[in-house]
């Protein structure tokens, strides 16, 4: 029985992030947290209580925060630079480009409350451009885990990886989807459910919605493949090509603009390697109205029933072509 149907416990992935960060901090004195007056929103209170001197709070100054992170790494430390994703990426984009990515600094950028987690606060606080801004930068893996298990695994992986990383986290509760003990592999999608009619691909807060949509499709006799694709860069070319060739159609959904994000990254592969009809769901190129993240995702056609409907329309396009 699918756990999604039984009102599973929802997890705030920030909790998984700080649990691993604090464990890493205990094991390795080089682990430091850097933030922009965001101790509370990044859930760094526990880290601060344990190692107050290793919590580098630069105040409300994101450009400095990212530069300081690069300097700390130069001095041999392992900095996790945490801030609301809208500010971490938008305000400091040139620092992310020059000081982190181009300099290949061993800095872990952690975008908190990404997507529309701050839905009611309006478009200034929505971070629905961050995939587009970051995935064009060489050297910088871009990762949006789908649950607390993958978040923990990705943080663990990022700490061991030598080089910059952008982890895009949310505060919106999600059910656990991946098995306990899951190991994160950069650039490798996870097959959560197999099928041959269509492939549904998502990451972050959308993956569990894809699982629900697949349940709806299955109830109508349509078997959808579901891939969780946390890594937006480097994209899993092999999984995308297999999805396109084996299922003939790909639907993507993301808490991001439809321009430049996960769907675009997948489309780049599909067009070049295995042309197939696609549908990209996300924020349709507008500044989003007021509402919670969950409300807005529904509003933009990403409720499971709407996703299932879009998938059926996509499958029809596939048949028309055949």
């Amino acid at each position: 029985m699918n756990a999604i149907d039984t009102k599973p416990k929802l997890h705030d992935c920030r909790d998984a992030f700080v649990a691993v960060l604090e464990r890493l901090g205990a094991e390795n004195s080089k682990v430091v947290a850097v933030c922009n007056d965001s101790v509370g929103s990044s859930k760094l209170g526990g880290f601060k209580a344990k190692w107050p001197e290793r919590l580098v709070n630069v105040g409300i100054a994101e450009q400095n925060m990212v530069g300081v992170g690069a300097g700390l790494a130069n001095g041999g430390l392992l900095p996790f630079v945490c801030g609301a994703s809208c500010f971490l990426t938008g305000r400091s984009l040139e620092q992310v480009k020059a000081d982190i990515a181009y300099s290949n600094a061993n800095v872990k950028l952690v975008g908190i409350s990404s997507g529309m987690a701050y839905g009611e606060l309006g478009p200034t606080h929505h971070s629905i451009e961050d995939f587009a801004w970051t995935r064009v930068l060489p050297n910088l893996p871009v990762i949006a885990p789908c649950d607390s298990i993958e978040t923990a695994a990705a943080v663990e992986w990022a700490a061991a990886y030598q080089g910059p990383v952008f982890l895009r986290l949310s505060r919106v509760g999600v059910p656990d989807l991946l098995p306990a003990g899951h190991k994160f592999e950069l650039g490798k999608a996870n097959l959560l459910r197999d099928g041959d009619a269509v492939t549904l691909i998502a990451n972050g807060t959308l993956t569990h919605r894809m699982m629900k949509a697949a349940d709806i499709l299955a109830s109508q006799g349509i078997e959808a493949r579901v891939l969780n694709m946390a890594t937006v860069r480097p994209i899993d070319v092999e999984a995308v090509v297999k999805a396109a060739t084996e299922t003939g159609a790909i639907l993507t959904a993301e808490e991001h603009s439809v321009y430049g994000g996960l769907g675009s990254a997948i489309a780049e592969v599909v067009v070049a390697e295995a042309p197939a009809p696609m549908k990209i769901l996300g924020v349709p190129g507008i500044f989003a109205p007021t509402g919670s993240a969950e409300f807005l995702l529904d509003e933009f056609g990403m409720a499971p029933a709407a996703v299932a409907e879009a998938a059926i329309a996509l499958i029809a396009r596939k048949k028309t072509r055949a």
Binding site: Q63, G67, A70, G71, N74, A98
Partner: peptide
């Protein structure tokens, strides 16, 4: 030590280096 070119980048990075020490 770090890539510069766009102005206003070196000093924040240097602050991080000094803080690391």
């Amino acid at each position: 030590e770090t890539n510069t070119g766009p102005l206003g980048h070196g000093l924040p990075v240097a602050v991080g280096m000094a803080k690391a020490a």
